[in-house]
């Protein structure tokens, strides 16, 4: 009996120690009974700017693009991007052609090939709002029309008007002004 009580006390002490060691951390870090976060996770998909992989990467290279780290994308893909841009858009068919940002095909694709989103920490964040260029991406930014204009619109956004705007300018549901900003699901 004494032995059993002693064993119970030992057991309770062990439990108390275990409990105390756990409660040093918050519930996220509970390593006694918390979730298992171990292991190595290997890349499958990545994205910086919208539509870059789908538009500029050739069919057989799309998986490869997704597992090329951004710091190596320019060397691996800029040439492909330029070839595809010049084939796609008559606005870049001739020497000296540029988009409305003054970028020729090499400069434009040199920007796009490193597929990261530039985000300003100092003010307005937008893909393009007529004044600010590539300072972030808002939910409401009409990024496809911006990209179509830069691809097809030529030096002053006037070329190929039928191809440089998909005429869908806004989402089908209003966004929220507060976190988490996205609209509730349909």
């Amino acid at each position: 009996m004494n032995s059993n009580i002693f064993k119970s006390l030992i057991a309770m002490a062990v439990i108390a120690v275990a409990f105390t060691s756990c409660s040093d951390d918050d519930d996220v870090m509970d390593q006694m009974s918390g979730p298992d976060f171990s292991g190595t996770f290997v890349q499958q998909d990545q994205m910086g700017r919208p539509a870059v992989n789908t538009v500029f990467v050739s069919g057989g290279s799309k998986d490869s693009f997704n597992v090329t780290i951004p710091s190596q994308q320019d060397a691996a893909f800029q040439s492909m991007f330029q070839t595809n841009l010049e084939a796609l858009s008559p606005a870049f068919a001739n020497p000296g052609d540029a988009n409305a940002l003054g970028q020729d095909a090499a400069t434009f694709t040199g920007l796009l090939a490193t597929d990261v989103l530039n985000v300003s920490l100092d003010g307005t964040t937008t893909f393009f709002d007529g004044t600010n260029v590539l300072t972030g991406r808002n939910l409401a930014d009409d990024v496809i029309t911006v990209e179509l204009l830069l691809i097809f619109g030529g030096e002053d956004f006037s070329e190929n008007p039928g191809l440089s705007n998909d005429n869908v300018d806004a989402n089908d549901k209003a966004f929220e002004t507060s976190f988490p900003y996205l609209a509730s699901p349909w």
């Binding site: 799309k62 998986d63 997704n66 008559p90």
Partner: peptide
């Protein structure tokens, strides 16, 4: 423009939706 578009071996899907076979 249309011919060039047809000749492209790429197919635009969306922002990044179903962008590549593996994913």
């Amino acid at each position: 423009a249309v011919t060039a578009v047809i000749m492209m071996v790429i197919a635009i899907i969306a922002a990044d939706h179903i962008d590549a076979p593996a994913v």
